[in-house]
Design a protein around this nucleic acid. Sequence first.
DNA 1: TCGCGTGATGTTGTGTACATCAAGACAAAA
DNA 2: TTTTGTCTTGATGTACACAACATCACGCGA
Lengths: 232, 232
Amino acid sequence: MTGHSKPDVREDAQGSAARERFALLYGTLRNRISLLDYPPGTKLSEEALAAEFGISRTPLRRVLGWLESEGLLKSVQGVGTIVTDVDIEALAQVYHLRMELAELLGKLEPVSPDAETIALFRDLQESGSDLVNNPDPRRFAQLNMDFFHVLMRLCGNEPLREISERLYYQTARIWLKSISHMDMAEEAAIFSREITEVLAAVDIGDIEAVGHMRRAHISMSFKRLRNYYAGT
Amino acid sequence: MTGHSKPDVREDAQGSAARERFALLYGTLRNRISLLDYPPGTKLSEEALAAEFGISRTPLRRVLGWLESEGLLKSVQGVGTIVTDVDIEALAQVYHLRMELAELLGKLEPVSPDAETIALFRDLQESGSDLVNNPDPRRFAQLNMDFFHVLMRLCGNEPLREISERLYYQTARIWLKSISHMDMAEEAAIFSREITEVLAAVDIGDIEAVGHMRRAHISMSFKRLRNYYAGT
DNA sequence: TCGCGTGATGTTGTGTACATCAAGACAAAA
DNA sequence: TTTTGTCTTGATGTACACAACATCACGCGA
C-alpha cells in the first residue's frame, strides 16, 4: 500500500462516517460522468447537487475538487462546474500511454488470479455474450467498466493501478460518446471476443499475455475511434 | 492539452486571482513537503497555515485536498492533517513504475530540445559540478527537482508528464530523507555524471537514449537506497 | 440598425461559527 | 500498581451567509 488510500468505491476502507459519505459521493458522481448522465460540457450546480444528496456545499466541494484533480471537472468562478471534454489529439496521447501501461500489467508485480477473480471473468464473459444479443450503449459502458476493474485485480503494483484507473476514466466517457454512433453490434462482438481471449490467458495464469492482449485491443479500439472521427 | 489544466506552479496559466493564489499555495506547500520542511509524520494545522498565508481555512482546504489526492497528505478528523510516509515496499513499486515511465519518455511523442532547453541543461551541469564541491542535502534536492522539470520539457505526452511528476513527488522526499544519511559526496558525483550524460544525449537530439539513461539511473538509485535500508 | 454600457441574475470563491471526532490527562476503583 | 472511565483539548468536518465574478438581456444613444 502506498502512503495514501484513495477513497475509492471499491475499497470500502472502514473510515469515519464522513469518509464513507465522501467515497459514496465520489463514486456516484464519477459514474454519472463516465456513463454520460452528465455529458461533456454539462454545467453542474453545486447547490443543486448538495440539495440532492442532503448535504451542504462544503463537503460536496471536496468531492468536486477530487474530480477536478482527476480531470473530469473544471470549476470556474462566475461560470459553473463544467464536465470536461477532450479533443481527439489529447485522446491520442492518453491512448498511447494506456497501451504502454497495459503491457506493464504483466511485467510489474502481476498477481496470479485466484478462484474469485476467474469466476468474475467468467461472469463477464457471459454478460458479454448477452450484450452481443442485446446491444445497449449504457450496458456496454457498464460492462466495459466492470471488465476494467476485474482486470485491475491482476495488477499488484498499486501506483500502476491508480494511474491506469485515472486514465481509464478520462477516456471511458469519450469512448462511450463515440461508440453510440458507431456499429454497436460489431463493437460488442469485438469486446466479447476480447473477454474470451483474456479469460483464456487468465485461465492458464499468463498475465503477461493478458497485458499484450489488452494492449492490442486498446490499440485497435483507438484506431477504430480515429477512423470514425476521420469520417466526420 | 488534456481536458484539465493542473494549477501547477510552472505553467502560470493566466487565471483569476483565486486560481493564481491556489497555484502559489499548492507549489509552496508541495515544495515544503518535498524538501522536508515538513518531514513525513508532521501534523499540519489548517488554522496555522491559513493564518500564515493570510487567508481563511476554506481556500486552504482546497489546496490540502489536492495534495491529499496526490498522496502527499492525509486528513483525518479529530487528529490532523498529516504528511504521509511510505514503506520501502511501496517505494519499490513506485520506483519500478518510474523506471518504465522513464523509458517511455523517448518513445511517446518525444520533443526535440530547443536552444532554451539545452541551455537549461548546461546550467544544471554547472550547478551539478558546484554541488560535488559543496555537498548540501537541500541544494541537492532542489537541483534534483530542477533537473526533473527540465527533463519533462522533452516529454510531449502530457498525461505522461503529469503522471511522472506525480510519482516523482511521491518519491522525492523519501529519497532526500535517506540520502542525508548516505554518502553525499558519492551521490552528488553520480548525479553530476547523470546530468553530463543526459546532456550528451540531448545535444545530439537522441531522446530515446535519454530515456534509457534515466531508467538506468533510477534503477541504480533505488538499488543503493535498498542497500542502505538493508543495512539499517 | 448597430454598438455599447449597465444592471439583473446565477455561479463559484471565501470567511466564520459551530458540530463532530480522537487522543491524552487525570482520577477513582479494583 | 494497574485499569478504566471521564473530561479536557485541539484537530478536521459541516453549514451558512456573503463577496467576487462572468454572462446575458435590456435599453440607450449614435
